[in-house]
């Protein structure tokens, strides 16, 4: 029973990682850049939803929508101002810029909302008791898993069926060929950032609901973990992000419970390293041999 409850909390944590990892993986797949600021967009999403619930007194669903709108705009603005001018630049330059954006968001949040952690009321309180109360599953974790599945299905349909989704896949395969076929590459990339940031907002709300606290650095560690999850599952692959996220969450939760709290992150990273040594492109990633 104990094992089951750790497993469930792992799946729930993993679902949050998966939602964040989806944002990472989509941006990486198309723009070929590691968007280190993604974790901080999550934090912004958390703050916006918190403020709209406490200061504006909005109902939680409206707060989530507001957070999504703000994060989407933020994502597109960041992309337009900081990343778009660097399309032709070496990838390291873009990486450093993304780190700059990450610092900027963290410090802006520090100035706006202060360094002290804020209490975050979960958007849905309460839990289900099973097996005569031995196993309790909070509504938040059920909602997290549910949202993760919904987002996953929606994204798969979106990239598979719609014109924009097809354009995204084309851009991720070959940008210049896509441009020759009349696809507006810049708009496609902006759209990807918009979707990724909206997902980050949802992830922020879910993450804060399960951790119940929020501070300017809240997003950085989940951001790194989700990045790890994306690589673990095979970066650029949408089902890979889900698989990587959930597996990572389960490993972390079980390692915390049964091996060592201090070394939980190390165990997660060690599993990642071993996986990459066996499968250099991640679990579901495609291994593309270099052409000579």
């Amino acid at each position: 029973m104990e094992f089951l409850s750790y497993l469930i909390s792992g799946i729930s944590l993993g679902s949050v990682y998966a939602i964040i990892a989806l944002g990472y993986t989509m941006v990486y797949g198309i723009a070929k850049m590691l968007n280190f600021a993604h974790g901080d967009v999550i934090m912004v999403g958390g703050y916006i939803s918190l403020l709209s619930m406490t200061s504006l007194g909005l109902p939680w669903w409206l707060a989530v929508i507001l957070a999504m709108v703000v994060c989407t705009v933020l994502g597109v603005v960041i992309e337009g101002l900081a990343y778009k001018p660097l399309r032709a630049a070496p990838s390291l330059a873009v990486l450093i810029t993304a780190i700059g954006v990450s610092y900027f968001l963290q410090n802006a949040a520090l100035l706006l909302w202060g360094a002290s952690p804020k209490a975050y009321t979960p958007i849905i309180a309460g839990s289900v008791k099973l097996f005569e109360g031995q196993l309790s599953i909070s509504y938040v974790s059920m909602l997290t898993v549910f949202m993760c599945i919904v987002i996953m299905i929606a994204l798969t349909l979106f990239t598979g069926k719609t014109r924009m989704g097809k354009a995204m896949r084309a851009c991720s395969e070959d940008k210049s060929a896509a441009q020759l076929m009349g696809i507006n590459v810049n708009r496609t990339i902006s759209m990807t950032f918009a979707i990724g940031s909206a997902l980050a907002a949802i992830a922020g709300v879910l993450l804060c609901s399960s951790y119940t606290s929020l501070m300017p650095t809240t997003g950085s560690m989940p951001g790194i973990k989700a990045f790890t999850a994306a690589v673990f599952g095979g970066i650029g692959s949408i089902p890979g992000a889900l698989l990587g996220g959930v597996l990572l969450g389960i490993i972390e939760s079980l390692a915390k419970a049964y091996i060592s709290t201090q070394l939980a992150n190390s165990i997660v990273f060690a599993v990642l390293i071993i996986t990459l040594l066996v499968r250099p492109a991640g679990l579901l990633g495609k291994y593309v041999p270099e052409k000579v």
């Binding site: 900081a82 700059g100 610092y103 900027f104 802006a108």
Partner: peptide
């Protein structure tokens, strides 16, 4: 200062 540092970093890269 860290905000300015971040902005300087982004601007220099751009």
């Amino acid at each position: 200062r860290m905000l300015i540092y971040a902005i300087v970093l982004i601007l220099v890269m751009l």
